[in-house]
Design a protein around this nucleic acid. Structure first.
Lengths: 199, 199, 199, 199
DNA sequence: AATGAATGAGGCTTCATTCAT
DNA sequence: TATGAATGAAGCCTCATTCAT
């Protein structure tokens, strides 16, 4: 799909803001700075976003949506809850690895912001996360995973670990390669939750 | 140990700041507000803390130190890496459960702050976290846990899950009981990392 | 007389602006708001009026002119300065009563604006007000009114009272009927200025 | 009574603001300008007044109060409603004559401002104006004035005329001497409202 | 040691106005 | 002629921080 001129301007502002917020921090970044970097006037930013915080909250809307669409697409092709979880973890890690500024904004300034909870962008994320819960429940139902599992807790393990790794990564730069953790991470989690067949 | 008058004043400011930051957010809270709540003048706050951010960074120093001392004490009494991990998770969750304001400040405003990394308070936390790594390594060495485990990853799973649960807990207004997660959480993690004793 | 399309658009903008200024205040009202209400673009407003203040100053031009033409017409038909003053006061009050938005704009945003003094609209008003002075002078000359009267002062009494009543009326939301003040007002004024015919 | 240092600062700001508003207009005047003229920082202004408009509304509080106290004092010493009205008109005109900046602010920016209605300063004014109504009612009761008079209308005549004259004076500078109007004005008004005794 | 009072510094935001189509 | 889109310009206001007592 081709973007209108307006959409291009808007995307430009969002991308620039993502970079500036990631580099300088949300509070430290100024609208002046973003405008300068994006080569638009400050007033133009306010044509598209009502406040500086509104601009921040607009960042995840689109890219999160895309990620979760891709995820839904892949999940249809994969059989087995364990394999699906592996794919999910990979897609998350790969997505963050390839969008470090976005990852930084998400981990450092959006999650942990109470006001973000009431936001369109957050609703998109919540919808995506539901997919994880569904996969876990699917695994429990078909006896891949233990019957006594609390799906919320399992999901928290997966998301929590990812968030912790990614947060460390954006804050310290280590480790360089996020995706190398996917396999060992998933192995441990799957072993931790799988049904103990025929021991 | 008895506290000097000065120490009492300082502790009063820190406790008040913790509460105010937790309730209103770090950026939203003002020194004026903290001073009013603590019934001291704004200038007095600057007698003890050089900046607003310095005040924030001073919050974990003491209580974290205490937590990790308690932890070290308990770990000496417990045999088995798995049991030690259970104790660790419990101590964390119990500590947050009993100090929700402190938990909120830690999860929402300190972790994710790059400047906090260079801080005394953060060093205390790092020291404490080393204990977790040591327990994991101990478990690997004595064949309780799989040989191929990456201790950093396991530690990230544990901390990441805790952080995720506690963050959710403080952001949604502390509805559930945190400590009830300890057992199922540890069960899954242990099963996920334990050596497969020929089942 | 039929209006050209352009004149219709211009009148539409003026009428809308009058309403919006009256409801929201001159400073508080925005061009955007007026444009939206008038269903034209902001840029279109600038085709007809050079500035926001120019738009404000254009409001009285036409309607004031009309009022004073009507007034001149009536005055020709009336005999006696006292009767003429009564007619004048009635015409003013009746006009404001029937155009409350215009009355509000005139009383709240035009009178009291120094820049308005140099304006076409203000000159129209001044011309109209001269008629009042003429009537007063006529009354003095033909011994209806006292010889020692200062016509400027009498005119100020009449206009000042009208302005005060109308201002109160527009500021409190037009509760009363303005025209019912005409008779008692004129009675007192006439009695106050008429020659004391040896009672 | 001696003023505290704080009260002196506050009065200094109010007096400066009065002058600047009178000279440049409320909208045109800036806080920066007032601060510079008053030789205080902009922030200091906000220590005493919550907003620019709050500063404007604070201007009449004190001086109006003083005026109406003086008025109440004089009225006690004067016998006869007509004489009292004369005193009232004189006190108003004299007060405005001696405080032209205050008169300008009051006439051009306060009266005609709907938000001012809900203000402490406006309540002070309303209280003062009640005194006028009382004098009029007193005159009606003791047969100095006509029985059929509407006190609100008479008060409107007096205030309206004063306001009109003062407004013209602050906007154009004419006439130079306001108080010269007191006697002819009062003469006309009294004659206009007095009971027609035995003529 | 403690504070009331004062301010420096700068950001966000608003809108009237313009311009390219 | 009409307008959607873009911006220049500037002001209000906030607050962390300091200073004199």
């Amino acid at each position: 799909m081709t973007l209108t001129k307006t959409q291009i301007r808007k995307k430009n502002i969002i991308d620039t803001a993502t970079r500036v917020f990631a580099q300088r921090g949300f509070q430290e970044a100024t609208i002046t700075e973003i405008a300068k970097e994006a080569k638009v006037s400050e007033a133009s930013i306010y044509e598209y976003f009502s406040t500086k915080e509104g601009l921040l909250f607009s960042i995840p809307a689109e890219s999160s949506h895309t990620l979760f669409e891709v995820m839904a697409f892949h999940l249809k092709l994969i059989r087995g809850a364990a394999n699906k979880l592996r794919a999910i973890v990979f897609l998350f890690m790969d997505s963050y690895q390839n969008n470090p500024d976005f990852a930084a904004v998400l981990m450092l300034f959006l999650k942990h912001n109470k006001k973000f909870l009431d936001t369109k962008g957050h609703h998109a994320i919540k919808e995506g996360i539901k997919q994880i819960t569904q996969v876990i429940e699917e695994g429990i139902e078909n006896n891949e995973f233990r019957k006594d599992l609390n799906p919320y807790l399992v999901r928290s393990m997966i998301l929590g670990t990812i968030e912790h790794l990614v947060t460390n990564w954006v804050m310290t730069g280590n480790p360089e390669n996020l995706t190398e953790f996917v396999d060992p991470l998933i192995d441990s989690i799957i072993q931790g939750i799988e049904a103990q067949t025929q021991k």
